[in-house]
């Protein structure tokens, strides 16, 4: 399958994530959109990894080119998981304090 399909899909996912972050006010949905963007990047990484690996195989059967990208993906997943745990905790604390998960209430940065 040509790489373009993967790229289009990833861009679409990423854009949906960005739009979600920008437009939604619910913190949990914003959070999910951030995950969406991360996964869009993951998808791209895996796709390119596979593509480079395939081209490299033609020259050298034992090559490991492209494997690093898949490693990155694992890192990102780990970071995302850690982020989820911290982020959800923050959202819970936020709910406890202001009884809402609407991020427009979070304008304390100004002060």
């Amino acid at each position: 399958m040509p790489i373009n399909y993967y790229i289009f899909l990833a861009v679409a996912l990423f854009s949906i994530g960005v739009m979600g972050v920008l437009t939604r006010r619910n913190a949990i949905i914003v959070f999910m959109c951030i995950e969406l963007m991360l996964n869009a990047v993951n998808l791209l990484l895996v796709a390119f990894s596979k593509m480079h690996h395939a081209t490299a195989l033609a020259g050298d059967a034992a090559t490991m080119v492209g494997a690093e990208a898949q490693l990155f993906v694992f890192f990102i997943m780990v970071v995302a998981a850690a982020e989820v745990s911290v982020g959800l905790a923050i959202i819970v604390m936020m709910y406890r304090n202001i009884h809402s998960v609407d991020i427009n209430f979070l304008n304390r940065l100004k002060h």
């Binding site: 972050v21 920008l22 427009n104 979070l106 304008n107 940065l109 100004k110 002060h111």
Partner: peptide, 9 residues
Amino acid sequence: QSGQVGSYI
């Protein structure tokens, strides 16, 4: 510097 996270993003 509105303080709105959304605007920053």
